[in-house]
Write a protein that binds this DNA or RNA. Structure first.
Ligand code: ZN
Ligand code: ZN
Ligand code: ZN
Ligand code: ZN
Lengths: 132, 132
DNA sequence: GACAAGTTGACAATGGTTCTCAAGGACGGT
DNA sequence: ACCGTCCTTGAGAACCATTGTCAACTTGTC
């Protein structure tokens, strides 16, 4: 059960730095890359804090986290509605895409086989026009 | 460049053991679990060899490798036609699913944005009836 | 059997991610 | 401003899946 009281989230220098760094990217980046950008901007935030903040933002639905082919987590600030990604495998350029039909399809497939608590991952990789 | 000569693949006791272990599962398992099953069956194969063999089989398209929500690689021998998976996140029970409409959708989305050389990943996770 | 080349396994190394815990900061009440 | 409480942070250790190392061992071939 989720308790009704949420622990307050305090606006700290560190959390602001992570949010700013995220805004500086429009493609998916690893926690390390985000940490590096923060450092390069003169700020100093512990790597563990970067991970904590990214996880919290992901839980809150304010950033998307997915895994690259090596299983590493990569992150990107996204619109807050459910969507998927069309990602250039050369330069990382990302397009958010929606597919109501796909959402319906995954749900019905799962129901058909009696699975509950459904989640799904769907990513499309390709080469963007600029990288052709 | 891929050379035209392929290095010969020798049928060894270890590779047979991995294949047998794979056949003993009908769901996705980690390399560690596969290694454990081999041990339990009395055979002895180094973990590194399990990884090497699984990777080779995946490259050859004889097993599917995907990543669970923690980013760990999990493996399963699969049919050789293009399909996706509905996976129980508790016990790993897997259903292969096909969705021609989804295949069409990903293709058209990609074309619409000028992306070429399209590939995609789509996995559905949930809790199976037995694990409810 | 002898040779060249592929294969193995114990172990070390790698590297992303999480954990630990003492020190620091935010906030409400006074 | 001062306190007390609870949240937050960071340096480093710990974790752990995966990969690299390399000498010993197989396998296929002649
Ligand atoms: Zn591109
Ligand atoms: Zn979706
Ligand atoms: Zn199950
Ligand atoms: Zn598909």
């Amino acid at each position: 059960m989720t308790s009704t009281e949420r622990s307050p989230v305090r606006p700290t220098r560190q959390r602001r730095a992570v949010a700013t760094a995220l805004a500086g990217f429009d493609d998916f980046r690893s926690a390390q890359e985000i940490h590096d950008l923060i450092s390069r901007q003169g700020d100093s935030v512990g790597l563990a804090t970067v991970y904590r903040t990214l996880s919290a933002l992901a839980d809150a639905g304010e950033v998307d986290m997915l895994r690259n082919e090596d299983g590493e987590a990569i992150w990107r600030s996204c619109s807050d509605t459910h969507h998927h990604h069309l990602v250039c495998r050369t330069c990382g350029a990302t397009v958010e895409v929606e597919g109501p039909a796909v959402e319906r399809w995954t749900g019905s497939i799962a129901a058909e086989h009696g699975y509950a608590d459904i989640s799904h991952t769907l990513e499309i990789f390709g080469t963007c026009p600029a990288c052709r």
